[in-house]
């Protein structure tokens, strides 16, 4: 019996460690990514669908975007979310950077305790932190009702800062590890004050981590539902809380459109984040 002649292959056969070139693994990857992305793709696709039923494709339309962008309550919620995220990010970056510098630079009594306490907001279950904030703003520090915007968002902003700034501190500390302290000493020898050394030597070195930390804080705040759910009142609805109440009633293309807009914002933020940090670094 004659064996079929093997055609010359362009590439050498897969090496023992080139798992990505083995077909069972490729199939597996394909399945996992299909699982992760098909729901999101359908969500985006049907935001352009010209049908209220949201299931049969009836043609392309931008009507739902028009509807979403003129829906007063949806817009307010979107604006609230962005405002909260922005305010929380600014404070979180400052607090996170200060905490990271304090832990890196100084020895002080209770340092280990402080370090452990800073890790708590990262690990505590969201629901526990949510109820803690609910109780705090109901009993310990009642946030005044009917304040003018954006002060009515204060309770939410404060809660968001509490769970965001420890994340910023982690990112900044990782960067501080690569700082050459002799640079700062040189600056001081040359007559720089504490403040000048901080501003002209340390901060420029930390800049990439400050930006990465800021993007992280912004996304965390924008993404949060549970903790906001416990701190928001009827006139301080954020986008996730609004979507939650809409989803409970029905699935409408308008929600698809609004979600697609937020999805777009996420993609943009991720791309910006990647300009400052490689995915491989973030993953570690």
């Amino acid at each position: 019996m004659k064996r079929p002649v093997k055609r010359p292959v362009k590439r050498p056969p897969a090496g023992p460690l080139e798992y990505l070139r083995r077909w069972p693994l490729r199939l597996w990857l394909l399945a996992v990514f299909a699982f992760l992305y098909i729901p999101l793709f359908t969500l985006v696709a049907f935001s352009f669908n010209d049908s209220k039923r949201n299931i049969v494709w009836r043609g392309f339309t931008l009507d739902w975007y028009g509807k979403a962008l003129t829906d007063e309550s949806l817009l307010t919620a979107f604006g609230n979310s962005l405002t909260i995220a922005l305010l929380s990010t600014i404070v979180s970056v400052v607090l996170g950077a200060l905490a990271a510098i304090a832990l890196w630079r100084f020895r002080f009594p209770g340092r280990t305790l402080f370090e452990g306490a800073m890790a708590l907001p990262i690990v505590v279950p969201e629901i526990c932190m949510g109820v803690a904030m609910l109780v705090f703003f109901a009993r310990v520090l009642p946030w005044p009702q009917n304040l003018v915007w954006p002060f009515n968002l204060g309770a939410i902003v404060i809660s968001h800062i509490s769970f965001s700034f420890p994340f910023v501190a982690v990112v900044v500390r990782a960067r501080l590890a690569s700082f050459n302290r002799e640079e700062e000493e040189a600056a001081r020898d040359l007559g720089a004050s504490d403040w000048q050394a901080l501003r002209d030597v340390l901060i420029p070195h930390l800049k990439p981590s400050l930006i990465a930390g800021a993007l992280l804080a912004f996304t965390l705040s924008l993404d949060d539902f549970v903790i906001t759910f416990f701190t928001s009142g009827p006139d301080t609805i954020t986008f996730p809380v609004k979507v939650y109440s809409m989803v409970r009633f029905s699935v409408t293309p308008e929600v698809n459109a609004a979600s697609t807009l937020l999805l777009l914002l996420t993609v943009v933020l991720t791309v910006v984040a990647l300009r400052f940090q490689k995915p491989a670094e973030i993953a570690h």
Binding site: P39, L40, F225, P240, V251, T266, L269, P279, A283
Partner: peptide
Amino acid sequence: LLLVMLPFWTNLLIRTYALIA
């Protein structure tokens, strides 16, 4: 890595809503 991380950055509510749909 980007493909793995993108859903991770996406709003939890949007992802849950997508699943409901």
